[in-house]
Design a protein around this nucleic acid. Structure first.
Lengths: 337, 337
DNA sequence: CCGCAAGATGTGCTCGGTCATATGCCCCTC
DNA sequence: GAGGGGCATATGACCGAGCACATCTTGCGG
């Protein structure tokens, strides 16, 4: 038996089936209290009998609420963004929201602006921007008016609230730990320029060194990739007097470890290494990596919280929620000899 | 001048501004050819002047096309799913589609069914299911009728097309490589039970051993995590006669490497190790990991291709698109002594 | 036994687009 | 010069829900 183009059932069909008006069906669906129990039962039965599913698109049109949140992100393959988005999605769904994602493969102001534009057309109730680059940040200056938004790891800004992990503090923790171990100074392999995290981590690292009156070595430029860490590691292995390295993320730390091991430099005996992120692999590096832990799930949750508050109660003051970093000591650091 | 609750402009506003009917505005927006050039220009100017953005929700209501695709996935923090979804999102956006994601933290038939249900209500034009577990797979048996769908790494099934990487072939490549190096047999650390990849990889590994008439050791159960690999590695290090290990993914390989190194077992001198996935880190493990490469981006692209074909041309025959795995030889394998 | 408030249900309009169709217009041909 | 075809544009219905309001019940106090 072919079903010749049978249209999906709509509210009116359910209403007819249950012998009530479409409005009553709507009430049942929305758990409105003022419906008699037996009527409710009749409607519910009609719903299951017909296999009716409500059309959220039609609902969104009239309520002007799509219960969908937009996420704009850069390279969702990276552990940080992926984890943050996971946290966002979980929190959003718990709150009854869908998540629509746009992941950009290159970041510039126009890209981000366009992405936000698409999401706006699509009718999202709010946007989370996970694009912690200066260039991306500029796109937030002129958001579509009235669009609730929140940024992950952004700069302070008059209009958009920010949820972030305290990068400076994380870098301080790492650097201080190394100084406390008796190292004279700490070398730093940075993230890509333009990233705010990169800047924060450099700032924290530099601040600790300067406060302690230590020499501040020229940082080595990286790009988050293990390969960049590997290249930096080769350079550092060839230099004299390097005893402590702080890399801006764990993947680069892995590259550094690899390079050092190839050069016959022992970690932590000859050189101590600290990373940033605490990816699941770090614990099993050779040696297990001492690193700064970021609670991405918490960031995701906070984002949704801030965003929903804006959606429900109107524009918020541009707050800045800071999630403190943790520090995990493993075996890649040791006292200086 | 405050703008007191100014509603966003709609088509009618643009029409009035440009002195045409709303239908003409619609034609301009949809690039309908039959619009005089100067009219078009007038409309476009009105659009920019008013900052008008079309409301895709209203459009979706009447066209019954939301230009949104749903993705149901398990733990998008894992490298495989994350990469696949990235590929899906890129391909979808290129084709003018949005992607709405539901990522499940635990997989069972009901979960997946619910997720698909939510997405259906939300009006997605099709669904990609990235949940390669037997239990998830069962949820695909009774999809909402007429909903285009495609599964990543699924079993063969009458109703849903599948895009997958040839797991069996990948495992064969890995195992054969080790046998070719002169190893008597190969030990295997598996993924979690219930995962189809786990089964495929076991099958490929077992087949090669049996074809070569080699003993088939009892596989060690893992769960993709580095820790599971570490535990398995400790067991294997304690056993006699182990010279070659094939782990079902790279993260577990990392754990194995760590455990072996702790026990003073040298890789590849004493034991050879092969992984699966080729995550960006693998190249920088100690030693760099020989592994099976999966082209997740290709999988994502194929998914969208298959899905869009279904959306445009009606239900497809349940095809099965197989992406061949690659094999990357690095330094974690060596001839048996 | 009536009145009235609260509860239960129904009616018709609205959201902002697209679709089918109608209309006006110009130009070309016989 | 009338008829016809194609183009440019306008008109009104419609998608499937929710909302405001109208209407019909019901229960309870006086």
């Amino acid at each position: 038996m072919t079903t010749p183009k049978r249209r999906l059932p709509v509210m009116a069909d359910v209403a007819r089936e249950a012998g009530v008006s479409h409005q009553t069906v709507s009430r049942v669906l929305n758990h409105h209290p003022n419906v008699r129990a037996d009527t409710r039962a009749r409607v519910e039965e009609a719903i299951t009998r017909l296999g009716y599913r409500r059309n959220l698109v039609a609902r969104a049109l009239v309520t002007k609420r799509s219960r969908t949140l937009g996420v704009v992100s850069f390279d969702t393959t990276l552990y940080g963004p992926a984890s943050t988005i996971y946290g966002i999605e979980q929190a959003a769904r718990t709150a009854g929201y869908f998540v629509s994602i746009v992941s950009l493969k290159s970041i510039d102001t126009d890209n981000v602006r366009d992405a936000i534009g698409y999401l706006t057309e699509q009718g999202v109730d709010g946007v989370v921007v996970v694009a912690p680059q200066r260039s991306a940040w500029r796109a937030l200056d002129n958001l579509p008016s009235g669009m609730p938004a929140v940024a992950v790891e952004g700069m302070h800004n008059a209009c958009v609230p920010v949820v972030c992990i305290d990068q400076v503090q994380g870098a301080r923790l790492a650097t201080r730990h190394l100084l406390d171990q008796g190292h004279e100074t700490v070398w730093h392999v940075t993230g890509p320029t333009d990233w705010l995290e990169t800047e924060g981590r450099i700032a924290g690292w530099r601040a600790v060194l300067e406060e302690a009156g230590r020499p501040v070595p020229e940082p080595l430029a990286g790009d988050w990739s293990p390969r960049a860490g590997y290249e930096a590691g080769k350079s550092l292995a060839a230099m004299k007097g390097v005893t402590a390295i702080f890399t801006a993320n764990d993947q680069m730390a892995l590259g550094v470890l690899r390079a050092l091991s190839e050069k016959g430099v022992r970690v932590p005996d000859d050189i101590s290494v600290v990373g940033f992120d605490d990816i699941p692999e770090s614990e099993f590096f050779s040696p297990p990596l001492t690193t700064v832990r970021q609670d991405f799930a918490a960031v995701g949750r906070q984002c949704i919280e801030v965003l929903l508050r804006q959606i429900d109660m109107g524009p918020a003051t541009a707050e800045r929620l800071v999630v403190p970093p943790g520090f995990v000591v493993r075996s890649s650091t040791a006292p200086a000899r």
